[in-house]
């Protein structure tokens, strides 16, 4: 056996060893995440162009940002995209989950088919849909060849409709994942509750509307949070599918930030747009994470 003082030293060592081992990860997070956020926030109040400068100009970058037509297009697009993406993914996901839950033969084959797009990158997804929706070789061309001469589908080339092609591709990529979340929620519901309601004479429609869907509330919340933050971050898909075009018609905040910072060399404006993006995501994520962590403690 070790002597008393040695044992004491060992206890103390064991006491600070965990913190010491955790320290590098914490330091890295504080520096690369929170330090960098601070850096970008500070930058957004300076007149930085191609390189950072420390000439403070107050809120003028934000004023300029909100006077730029490109930023307004980006905001309008993200509103359209995020709304449709979240609503359609949730609707399709919920429907497929409820249908798959009806003792379907071949569920084991269907489920992986619905989900595999989630394994693909947005660049691959964008490439596939870009050519599939291209009027020259894709869907429109195919329909013409099949004899439907008047068929026209040129959304991807249209200023006003191109944003909806991004919705189609994004829904294709993520709706299977929402299905999986709802399916897990459905499988967690106690069948006794359903049986009791059936004895009381509830129809299937009532059963789902009044009992099942309210019980899925946590799944709805998780799906919303995940889809919302994916929507705001969406960059790759826009680049691969439309490149932000035609013209700048499918500009999003993420593509705006990139082009203003690195192509147009207006770093101050780019930084301020990134700050707006962060604040939007934080407004959604922080209350959610806070409630999740708090529940966990009890």
């Amino acid at each position: 056996m070790a002597s008393a003082s040695e044992a004491d030293f060992r206890t103390r060592l064991q006491d600070w060893l965990p913190k010491l081992v955790l320290a590098p990860s914490v330091a890295v997070t504080l520096f690369f995440v929170y330090g960098f956020i601070l850096f970008t926030v500070v930058l957004s109040f300076t007149s930085s162009k191609m390189l950072p400068s420390w000439d403070f100009v107050g809120f003028s970058n934000y004023v300029r940002l909100f006077s730029l037509p490109h930023w307004h297009v980006a905001l309008k697009n993200i509103a359209i995209f995020a709304t449709l993406y979240i609503v359609i993914c949730t609707a399709i996901g919920l429907m497929l989950a409820i249908f798959l839950d009806q003792k379907i033969r071949g569920e084991g084959v269907l489920r992986p088919i619905y989900l595999y797009p989630m394994a693909l990158s947005f660049i691959v997804t964008g490439t596939a849909w870009k050519w599939f929706l291209d009027p020259g070789i894709g869907l429109e061309h195919v329909m013409h060849q099949w004899g439907w001469e008047s068929f026209s589908f040129t959304w991807i080339k249209s200023n006003s409709m191109a944003i909806y092609t991004i919705v189609i591709a994004a829904v294709w990529q993520s709706s299977g994942f929402v299905m999986a979340m709802f399916l897990a929620g459905l499988r967690g519901i106690d069948n006794e509750i359903l049986k009791a309601a059936q004895i009381d004479g509830a129809s299937n429609w009532q059963l789902y509307r009044r009992i099942v869907i309210p019980l899925l509330r946590p799944a709805f919340l998780s799906a919303f949070v995940i889809l919302a933050h994916l929507a705001i971050k969406s960059y790759d898909l826009v680049i691969a599918l439309t490149g932000g075009g035609p013209g700048r018609a499918t500009e999003m905040p993420a593509t705006f930030m990139y082009s203003y910072t690195f192509t147009r060399k207006e770093m101050g404006v780019g930084a301020s747009s990134a700050v707006i993006m962060l604040m939007t995501i934080a407004a959604i994520m922080i209350p959610y994470l806070y409630s999740e962590l708090k529940e966990k403690k009890e």
Binding site: T29, F36, F39, L43, K233, V275, I281, L289, L293
Partner: peptide
């Protein structure tokens, strides 16, 4: 703090 870092838009860290 570590959890929130999963969800930040990476545009906020690109410049630094």
């Amino acid at each position: 703090l570590m959890l929130f870092s999963c969800f930040i838009p990476f545009q906020i860290v690109l410049i630094p």
